[in-house]
Design a protein around this nucleic acid. Structure first.
Lengths: 138, 138
DNA sequence: TTCATTTTGTTAGTCTACTAACTATTAGCC
DNA sequence: GGCTAATAGTTAGTAGACTAACAAAATGAA
């Protein structure tokens, strides 16, 4: 059920955002870069919780499309600093709006109390899954 | 939060199942075929809620690995009937066990009542997202 | 200083998913 | 019967995610 709802939310977001001509991952990456200008690819990978290889390709495409630029890091010649270009600003405005709409659509009809409940239950599930490494003898 | 918990559950399952040498999609497809022997690729695609193209490739790999066989449909020469091979039986036993463990791990510490609550809240979110086509003016 | 280790990012190859365009077959209508 | 629609599956190409193996630069210890 949880997986299904997750999938439906992503689908809903995708439908609302398809006119932006950006994929979900690209949108997410752009949003993160906008909030944290100048971070490295490794840092971005950690934030998005994907592997650095994935970021390489993602940034490649965003750069080719002109949404992002790479600047060599002044202190570390291996690393890049990533910046969102001005071209992306209006898109990002849209993204925030759409995200809020999708969220509200999914949660509509749920009271403040129920939303808190959901959040709390999910939080406890999350705690079950993080800290403790999987014990296969369970 | 919901996305995160979903991702964590999938990760947990993947970790528990990695010794099976099957990916998550392959495992899921195998499980479905075991419960519904003889279905066509289109039907399987519908059940897994992916596009038929994806099934083509998935079944290609499962067949190459010897887990699944394609038989020509007796009434429709375009279609295949899909069957899980005997080789896959012991694996599937494992899959059910692992799925139950992963579920229990995620939900541990939640009472019967709380699980019902979660289910009901997610069910309502699901209803928000299915029936009604996205209204972009929201 | 030099050498081993860590970190940053890359290429190569695999798997899952998609769209678009296609073949072959079936089904329906005139 | 014959033409058109729809259906089952495929190939080709793209995007995203992964692992493995690697180069280059930075770090740190002997």
């Amino acid at each position: 059920m949880l997986m299904e709802v997750g999938r439906l939310i992503r689908e809903d977001f995708r439908r609302r955002a398809e006119h932006l001509k950006l994929t979900q991952s690209q949108t997410l990456a752009l949003a993160h870069l906008h909030k944290n200008p100048g971070i490295s690819q490794v840092t971005l990978a950690e934030r998005l919780e994907v592997h650095p290889v994935t970021i390489t390709q993602l940034v490649d495409r965003l750069q080719r499309a002109g949404w992002v630029r790479r600047e060599v890091h002044e202190d570390d010649r291996r690393a890049f600093r990533l910046y969102v270009t001005d071209k992306a600003d209006p898109i990002l405005e849209e993204v925030w709006k759409i995200a809020a709409q999708a969220r509200e659509h999914a949660l509509s009809g749920l009271s403040r109390t129920e939303r808190d409940q959901l959040d709390s239950l999910l939080g406890r599930m999350k705690n079950n899954l993080v800290g403790a490494p999987t014990d296969r003898s369970e």
